[in-house]
């Protein structure tokens, strides 16, 4: 005789871990970015995947931080990923010379905090640019394209690329810089 107790209830329950949808949506929106970044920093696909997992796990644990964060979610994730990689590298490097650890750790942690603000703040500021301005900035600076290449990619005139990049840079400067320094 065999008794059957395969339960749909149980299966549904397993899919309903709170915040699981958050992890799914972060993964589908930011996964490529996170993984590519982690692969570049670690030069190791398996290690990079583990970093991505750990990053998403921290995002899930700190969902409130993520929600309240005025900067960019992607900036938060990338910064956390980098911190994980840095911490692991430091853990490996520091272990044999524990004497140095005490001296170096506070400074390193402070650097982390500063960088968190910066990367998230910059990306947050870029997110507030108009999509046209943001696209020009990304092509010119982060993808290393020339004005003419960017013009071709975006299907606009080179003169438009120049003027948009000027306005983008000014707008970003205004958002990030101290108010007194902003040219008006």
């Amino acid at each position: 005789m065999a008794s059957v107790a395969i339960t749909g209830r149980r299966a549904r329950r397993a899919r309903q871990v709170p915040g699981e949808e958050l992890v799914r949506s972060l993964y589908s929106e930011h996964g490529r970015s996170l993984l590519a970044y982690a692969i570049r920093l670690t030069n190791d696909r398996a290690a990079a995947e583990d970093v991505v997992q750990e990053t998403l796990l921290r995002a899930w644990k700190h969902a409130d931080d993520l929600r309240d964060n005025v900067g960019s979610v992607r900036g938060w994730l990338l910064t956390v990923a980098r911190n994980i990689i840095t911490d692991r590298a430091r853990a490996r490097a520091v272990r044999p010379t524990e004497v140095n650890q005490e001296i170096e750790a506070p400074a390193a942690q402070r650097d982390h905090a500063d960088d968190v603000v910066n990367a998230m703040t910059v990306l947050g500021a870029m997110d507030r640019l108009s999509p046209d301005h943001r696209a020009v900035l990304v092509e010119l600076y982060y993808r290393g394209r020339t004005v003419n290449e960017t013009a071709a990619v975006l299907g606009i005139a080179p003169g438009t690329v120049k003027s948009r990049s000027y306005h983008a840079v000014r707008a970003l400067r205004a958002t990030l810089g101290q108010p007194g320094e902003v040219p008006r």
């Binding site: 993964y27 589908s28 992607r74 910059v122 870029m126 982060y142």
Partner: peptide
Amino acid sequence: VPPEAFLDGPP
């Protein structure tokens, strides 16, 4: 901001 910040979608 690393250049990878401007990749979108899942891996």
